[in-house]
Amino acid sequence: MELLKVNGKMDTKSLAKHVLVPIIGGSVTGWLANRHAQEKYQKLKKPSFSPPSAVFPIAWTTLYGLMGLAKYRVSKQQEGKRKKEISIYELQLGLNFLWSFLFFRWELRGTALVEMTVLLGAIALTAYDFFQVDRAAGTLMIPYIGWVIFALSLNYATWKLNE
């Protein structure tokens, strides 16, 4: 419960907003990007380490919640100031949402791979900057980095298997 408090206080409304924005945004993006694309995706050759489809919404919902919590913690530490940490966070979130369209909707798997490489850099920079403001916030971004490294290898392998 201490993780939800910043400077000894919890702002429930702000916390909910910060956590729900990436979760809802990711859900809507996933629905829009994957609508009518799953049949094609199921027909693709996938690497042996590709997890079952049911893993992805669970993983992404968890990761979106963690990144929202991290942003909440940083925004509370910087209340009244607009810092670059938040802009970089928003950039990586936008890149995250874009990837689904590139990979699923538009079937630009090579482009998605390049974009995800940029995304990984933006996430790492966000985590570093968050860590400078709030150690817990930076630490909350680490599972996201790990998952995107895994997703990057999955994107690459799927792209190569289906060229």
Rank of each mutant, 00 (worst) to 15 (best):
K84N: 03
L125F: 07
Y89H: 11
L91G: 02
L120Y: 10
L98N: 11
F49T: 04
L102H: 05
G94Y: 08
L120E: 15
S87N: 14
S53L: 03
N96D: 09
A112R: 05
G121N: 01
I86Y: 01
V74T: 07
A124L: 15
P57C: 06
V114S: 13
T62D: 02
L91T: 11
S100A: 12
W106F: 15
I123H: 12
P57H: 05
Y41H: 11
K83W: 10
I142Q: 09
A127H: 09
A54Q: 10
F103G: 03
L125T: 05
M141W: 07
A127L: 01
G68R: 15
L140R: 08
V114D: 08
K76W: 01
W60D: 00
Q92Y: 09
G110D: 09
F104W: 10
M116H: 04
N96E: 06
Y144H: 08
L66A: 06
G80F: 15
L125K: 10
L91D: 07
P51H: 08
L140N: 12
L119H: 10
E90A: 06
K46A: 00
G121A: 02
L113R: 14
S53Y: 01
F56G: 08
K76S: 04
K71T: 00
L98H: 14
E79K: 07
V55M: 15
Q78E: 10
L113D: 04
T111I: 11
T62A: 12
K45V: 00
Y89F: 12
W60V: 01
M116S: 09
T126E: 02
Y89V: 07
A70Q: 05
Q78M: 13
S100N: 13
V55T: 12
I142L: 15
M116Y: 07
P52T: 11
F103H: 00
R135F: 06
S100I: 01
K45R: 10
A59N: 12
L93R: 12
P143Q: 13
Y41N: 08
W99C: 10
Q132I: 04
A112I: 03
T111R: 12
E85S: 06
I58F: 06
L108K: 14
K43F: 05
K71F: 01
L93G: 10
Q132D: 04
